[in-house]
């Protein structure tokens, strides 16, 4: 793969990441959000795949496949299952910050991510990995947007997506910086994320059992 194509494909994948993150913020139908999330998983997998091809690393290729399975397959599946049992509530009710403001915030967060990641970008040596390093801010932006979703969305499922968005962003940063942090850690992290989502899914179900709804602002019994 020549350098230009690599850069183009990389940027495409990163653009996909960012776009899907913004879309999650934008859309209110939970079904759509899950779809968008699946697309983001695919974009992430693509990003890893591009890196794998670029570095000719079979190991990284395997990882890319794993990412694709987990993030575009298993996790969206789990989310969908959670949604299916959710019954009526398929839309995000009014988020704490309305959509327009959320999008503006996302813009600000993007700027923040760029400002913050300057040292990271500067640390990159000129050469092989440099285009990837240039994209670090995008990963960081996704993390921040994910966190923002977590803070402002009322549905349990949207929060779940927010958490996964963060995770996708972190994974992206990981691959963009150093092509992963070692297999064992990578596996461990993925397993943890999977389990966490499982746990959260079960809890969502339990919440519905006990509270009848999953508006998180109902959860105010424990307070001082």
């Amino acid at each position: 793969m020549n350098e230009t194509l690599f850069v183009q494909l990389l940027d495409l994948a990163c653009g996909g990441l960012l776009l899907t993150a913004v879309l999650v913020l934008w859309r209110r139908e939970l079904v759509v959000i899950i779809h968008v999330f699946a697309v983001q998983g695919a974009a992430l997998a693509a990003l890893v795949g591009v890196l794998a091809v670029h570095e000719d690393s079979i190991e990284l290729g395997a990882v890319a496949a794993g990412v694709l399975v987990l993030r575009a397959g298993v996790l969206p599946y789990l989310l969908r299952r959670a949604l299916a049992s959710a019954g009526e509530a398929r839309r995000e009710t009014r988020p704490l910050v309305n959509v327009a403001a959320s999008l503006l915030t996302a813009a600000v967060l993007t700027l923040l991510a760029y400002a913050v990641s300057r040292p990271l970008v500067e640390l990159a040596p000129s050469g092989l990995m440099s285009p990837a390093t240039q994209a670090i801010p995008i990963g960081l932006t996704v993390v921040l947007i994910g966190f923002f979703v977590l803070v402002t969305r009322r549905r349990a499922l949207s929060q779940l997506v927010g958490f996964l968005l963060m995770d996708n962003g972190i994974t992206a940063v990981g691959f963009l910086t150093t092509s992963g942090v070692g297999l064992i850690v990578e596996l461990g992290v993925s397993l943890d994320v999977l389990l966490a989502v499982l746990v959260l899914q079960i809890l969502t179900a339990r919440m519905r059992e006990t509270f009848g709804d999953t508006d998180l602002d109902e959860l105010r019994e424990l307070r001082d």
């Binding site: 704490l96 803070v151 009322r154 959860l219 105010r220 019994e221 307070r223 001082d224």
Partner: peptide
């Protein structure tokens, strides 16, 4: 008021 119970 720091601990209103709201997870958000």
């Amino acid at each position: 008021r720091l601990a209103t119970g709201s997870v958000h």
